[in-house]
Amino acid sequence: MPQPFRNRVTLVTGGASGIGQAIVRRLIADGARTVFTDIDETAGGRMEAEAGGAARFLHADATVEADAERSIAETLAAFGRLDVAVHNVGNFGTGDAAGTGLEAMDVQAWDNTLRQCLTSCMLGMKYALPPMLAAGSGSIVNIASLAGIRVTRYASYAYHAAKAGVVHLSEAAAVLYADRGIRVNVIAPGLTLTPNIARTMPDEVRASLVREFHPSQRMVSPNEIADAVAWAAAPDGACATGLVIPVDGGWSAR
């Protein structure tokens, strides 16, 4: 089986569960030496044990600058390089909720979501870029959402704004670092059947959402997101940069 990431070092934030876990597994299967971070120490340790030495877990909060800096430093100390960084952390912050009118938006809830989705991405890029620039090459893949490019009543105002920010931050970096060997791409998932969604969302609600949004009439699997990440980050995609790639069952084409 081809291993396009053989001898490559990858870092994934939020890699202990859901989409992040699928990304870590895919990169390992493709030969990468993989470091992943998460705030869930139990899940992270379990995932590291499952990987059997093929991945290293770091307990870190991607929204905290010191942790973002430490994650890169520890990756470099362990492996001496960083080829790929995948910034997967991003969710509604504490106090934020879909359905809250903009006129009722709590500023702290707004800040919490922007920190979860956008600031975490910026911090990851801030510290991933220097070793990549020193090497003259590197690939960054940022996980946004269809809510960053389409409006849906199921996302909050802050989440819409934060994910749109991830898209444009990535596009700006793709343009401004392209001549220095750095590629930056975005994966924008649609409705994704993570284990958490499967556990907490009733079947009839999932079916209703799929009918409304996905022409494919099914949800996206985390593995399909991971496939897109692997394609966007692959070493042979040297001219693929600045892309926003929806993985959404056709939602973005409606």
Rank of each mutant, 00 (worst) to 15 (best):
T194Y: 10
D179V: 13
D30M: 03
V247D: 06
W110L: 00
G80R: 08
D106A: 10
G52W: 01
A161K: 05
V166D: 08
A173H: 09
V84H: 04
R115Y: 00
A62Y: 04
L209Y: 11
A188G: 01
L146Q: 15
V89D: 09
I19G: 01
P2M: 12
H168V: 15
Y127D: 08
S252D: 12
M122T: 10
M132P: 09
V244T: 15
N142L: 00
C117D: 04
T200Y: 11
G136I: 08
T94V: 14
I28Y: 10
N142V: 00
N185S: 08
A207F: 10
V9L: 02
D38K: 07
I39C: 09
F5G: 04
F79M: 01
D248L: 11
I149E: 09
Q116H: 12
T10V: 12
T94E: 14
A60C: 02
G93W: 06
A104Y: 11
Y159Q: 06
A238K: 13
I23W: 10
A173M: 09
D203N: 13
Y159A: 03
H59I: 03
D203P: 10
E103L: 15
G99C: 06
M132E: 04
G95K: 08
M132V: 07
R218L: 10
N223L: 15
A162W: 00
R81P: 08
R199T: 13
D38C: 07
P246Q: 10
A22V: 10
L133P: 06
N88T: 14
G31L: 01
V175N: 13
T75M: 02
A49E: 05
W110S: 06
I182S: 02
G242R: 11
F5Q: 03
A232T: 03
A232D: 06
P202K: 10
G93N: 00
A128H: 06
G250P: 09
R153D: 14
L146K: 13
R218G: 00
H214C: 14
V244Q: 12
A134C: 01
T75A: 02
V24R: 02
M47Y: 10
T13D: 09
V86Y: 06
F5L: 03
E224D: 10
W251F: 14
A238G: 14
N112M: 08
V151C: 13
Y177L: 02
P195L: 11
P2F: 12
A162C: 00
V84S: 07
F36T: 08
L176D: 14
L193I: 11
G90R: 03
A135H: 06
L82H: 01
I149T: 13
L82S: 04
L133H: 03
C121Y: 07
S139V: 05
A233L: 04
N88I: 02
T119I: 03
A240P: 09
D83Q: 05
G136T: 02
T34R: 04
A16W: 07
Y157S: 15
N196I: 14
T100A: 11
V220T: 11
A173E: 01
C239E: 14
D40N: 15
A62M: 03
M105Y: 11
G80Y: 05
L114V: 03
I39R: 15
